[in-house]
Amino acid sequence: MKNKSLVSINDYSKEDYFKILDLAEEFQKNPKQKLLENHVIASLFFEPSTRTRLSFETAIQRLGGKVIGFSESGSTSVSKGESLKDTILTVSRYADLIVMRHPVEGSARYASVVSDKPIINAGDGSNQHPTQCLLDLYSIRKTQGSLENLNLFLVGDLKYGRTVHSLLIAMSEFNPVFNFVSPPSLRMPQEYKDFLDKKGIKYYEHNEINDNIKHADIIYVTRVQRERFSDPMDYEKVKNAYVIKNKMLEGTKDNLKILHPLPRVNEIDTDVDTNPKAYYFDQAENGVYARMALMCIILGVK
């Protein structure tokens, strides 16, 4: 895996992921390891994403590495019309590894073709965001002890939510049962259901959160965005149907954890935050360990 770019979750094997998850666990136990002291890492955010950028930059800093880059392209040569190719070719002469986020789909793959330094895709439009998937897997394994045979509830916008699609594909390796909870207009796309059918994985679709969550091991919540509805009335009708409240969690399994890629708006009521089943802030913290592990493995220092 040394020098191997991570652009899409399919780029790495199951074994590769286990290797990263194991190392992430080691970093969680002992985060003060200055393994990247002699490395410069570029963090190129062609569109702002504060949470992802801070997570990566924290991971780099904790490992003693140096960060160069920008948090939005407005004040850079990109705004003067420089091509992505030229930006990447230039930065690849400066840095040992490039973390990039770009609104254009396929941009990270293209960067990995032109660059002789490895690329980590921190999101390319609605296409891929593989490190989110990595930290989700880490969080699930950590809280459940294993990735095998889990009952996963995916709640919210299942049509456009790229994180739930990646999670579905990654978890399909581990014999799960899926429950999809969404408004009818934001259901899981057919291609993913076909994929599950082909693999013989069971899934159920629900229009609302109901008593079934008593069987859940993981509830993964995503935001239902107003922009996804052409008729604002349709949004008003559904916006409160997918809010997790503390009261709903009575009688759920002891091992249940609530995950959310954040930022949250109102889809998890703040009264859940103090419930030990709320895991989303731990999940965000886990992102730092997962990214530390990924970068160390790509740079060959672990």
Binding site: S83, L84, K85, P103, V104, E105, G106, S107, R109, Y110, G125, S126
Partner: peptide, 12 residues
């Protein structure tokens, strides 16, 4: 077919 694809934004 994807208008947001890099191949429709840059000479790729």
């Amino acid at each position: 077919i994807n208008p947001k694809c890099i191949t429709n934004h840059e000479k790729v």
